[in-house]
Design a protein around this nucleic acid. Sequence first.
DNA 1: TTTGGCACTCAACAGGCCAGAGTGCTAATA
DNA 2: TATTAGCACTCTGGCCTGTTGAGTGCCAAA
Lengths: 343, 343
Amino acid sequence: MDPRKKLILKAIVDEYIQNAEPVGSKALAERYNIGFSSATLRSEMAFLEEQGYLEQPHTSAGRVPTSLGYRLYVDDLMHRHRITLEEMETINNALRLKLQEYDRLMEETGRFIARMTRYAAITAPPQPDAVKFQKFELFLADPSSLVIVVVLEGGQVRNKLARLQKPADPADIRRLADALNACFAGQPSVTDTLCEKCALLAGSGAEYLPLAAEFMQEIIKSASTRDSYLSGETQLLNHPEFRDVMKARKTLEYLAEQRQSLMNIPAPPSPDSVRITIGPENVASELRDASVIMASFQMRGGQQGLIGLVGPTRMDYSRLASRLTYIAARLGALLQNDEEETS
Amino acid sequence: MDPRKKLILKAIVDEYIQNAEPVGSKALAERYNIGFSSATLRSEMAFLEEQGYLEQPHTSAGRVPTSLGYRLYVDDLMHRHRITLEEMETINNALRLKLQEYDRLMEETGRFIARMTRYAAITAPPQPDAVKFQKFELFLADPSSLVIVVVLEGGQVRNKLARLQKPADPADIRRLADALNACFAGQPSVTDTLCEKCALLAGSGAEYLPLAAEFMQEIIKSASTRDSYLSGETQLLNHPEFRDVMKARKTLEYLAEQRQSLMNIPAPPSPDSVRITIGPENVASELRDASVIMASFQMRGGQQGLIGLVGPTRMDYSRLASRLTYIAARLGALLQNDEEETS
DNA sequence: TTTGGCACTCAACAGGCCAGAGTGCTAATA
DNA sequence: TATTAGCACTCTGGCCTGTTGAGTGCCAAA
């Protein structure tokens, strides 16, 4: 692949990203001073089209990048945008503020990203691959209301209040708590044998073991499904490619209902990079006309969170990627220092 | 207002609700056998237009109800739709299933409503007007991780894990917990005098009081802001009135960002009725082309939850209202029996 | 290898025309 | 007196038309 061909392809993609209109040979020759006439460009463009990097919406229209074209652009051609100091400032300020309320951090970060980029933002908090129980505490809020508190390794805390049929004996509760700590601390699951052992230890407190066991199962289950937050979807409607309501509906519906599956996209190789998925490269057919940019960050302990953007294939990949990596990096740095959690 | 005029208005609204196209005198005379010729209808329609109940998109088009027309229709004219046994069945089944996971109940109910009605659904869980602390429990997950558990009256439980600078003495923690229970049980707020009293009682445990107090403030604050869930927004795009992307964007954006203010609409007078707000009756200008139907239900203790629908002014008010009231009633009934809460 | 030139294509736009649905008004009718 | 049939009028939307201009492919000359 000729370096000149690459230069031309880059120019076409840049131009199209900016103006959202098919790029013709003449306009290209005028605006970018590549030093060749429109005729030369025409033959080069014909070649690029033949190779599948460009396409024409119809004869006698300019050219538009295909997803293959964008792919080459993203991998090879695009000028790696450097984030400005100003943008850094904005991001740092915003994140510092959000950090105040940790449990809504990812949600709020998503809103911020959406506002900043004018695309739909997806965020998912870091999640441990396997949770282990660390500590149990049981007490009575009133004689017939049992509160179960479970601390997980990593610092998450879950609780549940269960109404009892009849008042319980605090001594029984105490015994059950001790038994749970003895049997389940450090365990990643609730097995029958552990339950039996625990029942034995708990003596008459075993009456309440089923309640606790059920709750523990719930915790294991909920910890293995990943949360995710979506914001700024409606901003997609601002972009000309979504002026067709039906197309927009498909995409928005997918984001609202099925976005979980976006999380399955393998995370970017290194924390400083992004993973870009263009149009039909997305497994979901509803995203055939959309691109996804994903970045990840790490918490202490290696748990990995995700932030990402969804937009039409015509996106300013370079600028967006640089912003996203910076946000991810800052988020990672901030979370190294503060990992307190509440629920 | 002539009963015949009313009959005609009702017929026009019914027809328009069904077909989304301006209703002309001839079509009306043919389809509904009112027993008058199109000429008569014409003069009546002219009158109704003069009175502000109807309008013409342009000369030589049929008539369309104004918001005033819908208002009269809703208040006086519409045939009160009876929900079918089948629908009841569907609703009951769905709600029974959702009830399994209480903490996501309102969210899931919203999804269900949206799917059933094909409009955007809004739900807000019942919320106590003032929370009071009931019981405190403090313990160490490990020597320098303090877990604070607060039980609120009504059965909500909140917790927080705080990392300490240095290992704490379990005896101090015990003392602080006792002091908190002594001072704050039954209190609805965190005052300075109570804090001082508590510090005195806690002795050397008072070192950790600020942590607890801050958390308690947080709880009070978060309990006084109402949660709400939105689902099915994208379904709005299916309706012809939102084929104009800009109009749709305005409305969707409002729902995403500002829906809190919908909750301020005074609740329906009785739990068996709905409150319908039509077009410009909505305070928010973004909802000028939308109508809102709201129903409420009560939990034990009189706390009131809301469920509602948002759609274009052309909605099948009668059918939707009947479904919504039924869902609200069932939800109320189910919640009377089960008020266990977890977080 | 590049370029100017030429013939060709096609979407987008504007104008003109027509059909159809709907209206208001009026005179005849029950 | 209330209703209706009839008529002239209005307006939108679809359809056809021609024109314009941006863009193309190809070819021969530089």
